[in-house]
Simulated assay, not measured.
Amino acid sequence: MIKLSFNFFVKSNITFGKGAVEKLPEILKGYGLKKVMIVYDGGVKAAGIAEKIVDQVKKAEVEYLIFDGVIPNPTNEVVEEAAKLAKEAKVEGMVAVGGGSSIDLAKAVNVLMTNPGTIGEYGGMNMVKNPCLPLIAIPTTAGTSSEITNVSALIDTEKVIKYVVIDNKIVASDVIADPEFTKTMPVSVTAATGMDAITHAVESYISNEATPLTEYNSLKGLSILYENLPKVVENGSDMEARENMMLGCIITGFGFSNANLGFVHAIAHTLSAHFGLAHGLANACVLPYVMEYNAEACPEKMVDMAKTIGLPVSGNLDEDKYLLAHALKDLIVKLKIKTLSEQNVPESAFDRLAEDVLKEPVLGFNPRQGVTKEDVITILKKAY
């Protein structure tokens, strides 16, 4: 049934295209900021991107503090460390450069700049009370959509969980999307982040919170991403494909930040919390098998997605509902996505992992409800 009563939230101003980073000084001046924190990781620094960002900040005649201690799957401890430095320096805004980890960390730090307590207190939905500082997000990957979503994903090392802060107040004020920056990514990262974006498109389309607007964005994003990901993995210099990947990622982000995600992310969060798996890889290796599982609950939508990516349908719903899952299996093989065993996840951990997956709030948005421990273990074994 189509929902004709819904909310659809969009906030960020987006500057897209080659050379878009040159708009940063103008954006910073527009906010009248005197000092900002620039957040990035070692990879961004090594690629020479950080230097380019700093140069643009200098052009704006804005003081800056650098935090380059971002780690994959950022933890509460790293967030608190960065927030302490930002508060001491009395920064008035944030510039986040990199993939999802850098942008998610900057969002979390931004929460603590205007709200009391520790970041763990803001896990869940709509827990942030006060507006945040201006945040300019500059993605260097085409995968997480963190630059335009209302989500920050973090690791609680004490509870051994990956949790999310979801709040419209944490969305970046501005996005500078320059596809040139994605050229520095290794092939494996391009593949994994691209599969992350495809996971977002697929899960948001079948979410039980989907609306006509989110469905449009999810399908459009899926179409763009599925066509261009193999191209950009095969030829990293294909700038048209890179532009399309970044565009598809943003379009998809509008969909999933409003519709939310599901079972794939429940598993991926748990894998990252226990074994430090990169988020994109954790999603990709279980995606086809979760889609097989979900096909029973939303066969028509599975066919919609199969048609969207150009798969030939027979008209037999019982067969066609699995076409997408089969195509995704072929895609992860083509992209050389590592299996769970290749990512050093021991089969002996499946029982414990399954128990923790069932605690994931995101399961509430999955189209097929009633997920059991045995269901999770079966999917983990298929991905092994």
Rank of each mutant, 00 (worst) to 15 (best):
V264E: 05
I198V: 07
H265Q: 11
A266F: 12
D196S: 02
T182R: 09
K231I: 13
S218H: 06
F254T: 08
A273L: 08
P179E: 04
L225V: 04
Y216P: 00
K220Q: 06
Y163F: 15
K162P: 04
Y226T: 02
T252P: 07
S152W: 06
M246H: 13
M195R: 03
T199Q: 00
K162I: 09
I166C: 07
A259Y: 00
V189N: 08
G194N: 04
N260S: 14
L154E: 08
F256Y: 15
S188N: 12
G255V: 03
N208Y: 11
E180V: 01
Y163E: 12
A192F: 05
Y226H: 10
G276F: 03
N228D: 00
Y205A: 12
I170H: 09
Y216M: 09
L225T: 03
F256N: 11
K159E: 09
N217T: 02
P230G: 11
N150P: 00
A210L: 11
A210M: 07
A268W: 15
G262L: 14
L213R: 07
S204F: 08
E158Q: 15
I170P: 07
N217L: 05
Y205P: 09
F263W: 01
A273V: 11
L213C: 04
H269A: 12
L247Y: 13
H274E: 13
G255D: 05
D167H: 11
N244Q: 15
E203W: 15
V160E: 12
T149N: 13
V264T: 14
T157Q: 14
T182K: 06
V165R: 09
A172V: 03
H265D: 12
S272E: 13
T193V: 00
M245L: 03
I198Q: 03
I176W: 12
E243N: 14
S237I: 06
D174M: 09
E203L: 13
F263T: 00
A191V: 02
I148E: 07
F181K: 01
S237V: 04
V164N: 14
H274N: 14
T270I: 07
V202H: 01
A172R: 07
K231W: 12
A197W: 00
M246F: 04
Y216F: 10
S237L: 12
E158F: 15
H274Q: 14
P212E: 04
H265T: 11
L229H: 06
A197G: 00
M245N: 06
L247H: 10
I267L: 06
L277H: 08
L261A: 00
A278C: 04
H200Y: 01
N217R: 09
N235Y: 02
G221Y: 05
P186K: 01
I148H: 10
A241C: 04
L222G: 00
I176Y: 09
V187N: 10
H269S: 13
A241Q: 05
S204G: 03
E209K: 15
T252M: 01
S204R: 04
I224Q: 02
S237T: 11
N208K: 15
F263Q: 00
E215N: 10
T252Q: 05
L261P: 13
E215G: 05
A153C: 10
G253F: 09
L247I: 05
N258R: 05
P186L: 01
G262N: 11
T149F: 05
K231D: 05
T149M: 05
T211S: 14
H274P: 00
A268F: 14
K169P: 06
G276K: 00
D174N: 13
I166H: 04
F263K: 00
I161F: 13
E147W: 13
E158R: 15
A201M: 06
S218K: 02
